[in-house]
């Protein structure tokens, strides 16, 4: 995919992500987030949720992966704005979808959504540019 060929209204291919305890825990540790609700089921229960759930940085990382898988490795993510909805619990599947909603100069605006069995986990907008010079 060449970002310069993107057109308004174009859909990004759907990405299904199985939500496992392994994904939640490894994502939390990789993002240095040691809050107990992301790795300790008993602690999560004590706070009123039925299981451990995904932290926001893992959601963010998965969205980043979804965007760069589509836009190509050299594309530059400039901005991600997102809102969280229902949690990602183990055993669920999150379906990521996205649509190109605007193109201004070279910046491509994408509306994305991650939906699981409980509803929308994440809804947001991202801005991506083609590579100019990767570092500096």
């Amino acid at each position: 995919m060449k970002l310069s060929q993107a057109s308004i209204g174009q859909d990004l291919p759907q990405l299904d992500i199985d939500i496992t305890a392994r994904l939640i825990v490894s994502g939390a540790i990789a993002s240095q987030d040691f809050e107990d609700v992301h790795h300790d089921k008993a602690a999560a229960n004590a706070k009123g949720t039925p299981d451990i759930f995904m932290n926001i940085l893992t959601t963010n990382g998965l969205v980043g992966r979804y965007l760069s898988d589509w836009a190509g490795p050299d594309s530059i993510i400039k901005r991600i704005k997102l809102k969280l909805g229902v949690p990602n619990f183990p055993g669920d599947t999150m379906v990521l979808t996205g649509t190109v909603t605007a193109i201004e100069n070279q910046t491509v605006e994408i509306s994305f959504k991650g939906k699981n069995g409980l509803g929308n986990h994440v809804v947001g907008t991202a801005f991506i540019e083609p590579k100019v010079e990767l570092n500096d």
């Binding site: 490894s26 540790i29 990789a30 893992t58 980043g64 570092n135």
Partner: peptide, 29 residues
């Protein structure tokens, strides 16, 4: 470790030298 957890395969993040970090890691540092 981040890429392994996220299923991220972008080669720019994983190359042997001069790797760049996924921007979404920002807050974790």
């Amino acid at each position: 470790q981040w890429c392994a957890a996220m299923g991220e395969t972008n080669p720019n993040y994983l190359q042997k030298s001069d790797a760049v970090a996924p921007p979404t890691m920002l807050q974790s540092w």
